[in-house]
Computed example of a mutant assay.
Amino acid sequence: MLAADLYGTTDHRPALVLLHGLTYDRRQWGPTLRELAQVDPGRRVLVVDLPAHGESPAPDSYDSGTLTALLHETIEDAGLVDPVVVGHSMGAVLATRYATTYPTRGVVNIDQPLLVGPFAEFLRSVEPALRGPDHLQVWNSLLAGMHIDLLPESAQELVRTRTTPRQDLILGYWQELLGSDAPADLNAGMRRDLKTLRDASVGYHFISGSDPAPEYRSWLEAIRPDVVVTVWPDSGHFPHLAHPDRLAALLAAPRSGE
């Protein structure tokens, strides 16, 4: 069972499940939860520490099947049915994969492109450093490109201090990317996942902190013509922390009669 906090009451509104990104924990959703309490009071929300993060134990395996099964166990224990799963970064990958296997109302992907081949190639190029004593140099170089400076000071502090970039954690969650000999196979797998969700009528919303690359947007819209793409410019990799009020408004359930 994963560590999680459950808020709100069960009613006609679809429950939300919030998944943080790699090396962070459920505390990163604090700003969003405060805004949701204002615009959608009483909404049922489950905020989860992913396996090996925060207060959740490490899994026996980091393969996606094991991770999503642990997540489903936690969602079931909370009594949630057909939730909207919201994920940031690596959490968005898990949200997408979760929805291909378990009943889900919709997926909200926060700043996680799913055309992962280029990133996998980069990781393989720095794999010796990732597996050696300098793994933090790789992580910090990635963090430097996430434009944390665009966030409010309180959010910058949250990103810099509520993180545990352990080597075993990073290698565990990136094992699929590091272990693939063909980046095209990874892209094909994501294509299958998105098509599965389309066929199952699971809504998909992609939120980006900058304009998506044209080739990525074309790839995504070719698979999911119904995808909703929202861009909050100059938000970096953490648009949910740059604009928690906008995210809360986006997630708020329609009122009766609207």
Rank of each mutant, 00 (worst) to 15 (best):
G189H: 12
A248Y: 04
L151A: 01
L115I: 10
Y98E: 00
P41I: 10
T96I: 00
D11A: 13
Y173G: 09
R124M: 04
E258M: 12
P152R: 10
P103W: 00
A52E: 09
N109T: 10
R191S: 15
Y216W: 07
H72I: 05
A184R: 12
T196L: 10
V138P: 01
R27T: 15
P212L: 11
I75G: 01
R224V: 07
Y204I: 00
G79Q: 03
T32N: 10
L178C: 06
P225A: 11
R160Y: 11
L143D: 11
V227R: 00
N140R: 13
R43T: 02
E121I: 12
L251N: 00
R162L: 13
R13I: 08
E153Y: 11
I223E: 07
A95W: 01
R217T: 15
L177D: 11
D134N: 14
P51D: 01
A15V: 03
V81E: 15
L33M: 08
G189W: 13
L150K: 06
R44T: 14
P113K: 03
T230H: 14
I223A: 03
A188M: 12
L177Q: 12
E215F: 13
D211L: 15
D40R: 08
G91Y: 04
W174E: 14
T32I: 15
N109W: 00
T68H: 05
G79N: 02
E215H: 14
T104E: 00
G209P: 06
D168G: 02
V86L: 05
L220C: 04
V107A: 07
L18T: 04
D63S: 13
R160W: 11
D11L: 09
Q112R: 14
L46R: 02
F119D: 05
D5I: 03
G145V: 03
T96P: 00
E35T: 08
P128K: 02
M190K: 05
D63R: 13
P214I: 11
E221Q: 12
I148C: 11
L136W: 04
V17A: 08
L186V: 04
D63M: 10
A253S: 14
E157P: 04
T230W: 13
P133L: 11
L197C: 01
R246H: 12
D193G: 04
A95G: 06
A182K: 11
T164M: 13
L67H: 05
V108K: 03
S154M: 11
D60W: 05
P57H: 04
T66P: 07
L241A: 03
V138Q: 00
L94Q: 13
T68M: 09
H135L: 06
V126Y: 01
D40V: 07
V228T: 15
G236Y: 05
L151E: 02
P239G: 05
V116Y: 10
V108T: 08
S235D: 08
A213M: 14
S61M: 11
H12S: 14
D226W: 07
L6R: 06
R192C: 09
H72M: 06
A242D: 04
A252V: 06
I170D: 07
L136R: 14
A252C: 07
A99D: 01
V17D: 10
A99G: 04
